[in-house]
Nucleic acid binder design. Sequence first.
DNA 1: CTGCATTATCGTATTTTTACGATAAAGGAA
DNA 2: TTCCTTTATCGTAAAAATACGATAATGCAG
Lengths: 102, 102
Amino acid sequence: MITTHDIKTYQLTADEERVTLMMKALGHPARMQIFRYLSENPQCITGDIVEVLPLAQATVSQHLKVLRESGLICGTIEGPATCYCLCDEAVTWFKEQVGALI
Amino acid sequence: MITTHDIKTYQLTADEERVTLMMKALGHPARMQIFRYLSENPQCITGDIVEVLPLAQATVSQHLKVLRESGLICGTIEGPATCYCLCDEAVTWFKEQVGALI
DNA sequence: CTGCATTATCGTATTTTTACGATAAAGGAA
DNA sequence: TTCCTTTATCGTAAAAATACGATAATGCAG
């Protein structure tokens, strides 16, 4: 039943939710570092990132998962290793969305 | 003592750290909603935002603090209330930084 | 002054995130 | 096959974030 007291919640659109998720993914120093490293070293392996961060392998793997789930990066299995790279379309889309904020 | 095994950590610059903090601030649905509300309703009061979100006043106040500390919004005391608005310079700077990613 | 309205902060419970060691899974080399 | 390398996942401990009610603190009206 609809009353005059219904709360007009400021809902986010699906796009805004996706942007929020990407923001959250990049809103952690370690993940921002990974993102930047990938932007400077395309096509690198998990081990490369582990070497460069002061974190355990399991932790880096977890951060990579968050970035993967946000869509900003993607990893393809390359033999026994996993090759990670930025997802260019997603990054471009993200930048467009942020540019359109306001 | 310095050895050849020193870890070359991928440090973030001060700017990148600030961007990361802003990303974190916007990486929560409630805060993204507040941000969007402020972009559509400049110069509004805490109570206005509380009315629009399905959250308690204390919680909204806490989210406003996070946004304030990120620099994206600023609040000025207006009588017994606080008037919030987006910090245009910070938002512009943030968008530039994101646009320059990669 | 007293009361009302507005908002920040405090204290706290719950949930989520973060980080790590240990383990599993999977590919390649010998 | 047996090793070695590489990485994801599991289990878990510690830290941080989230949400709320209760309580200040502040300004204004009467």
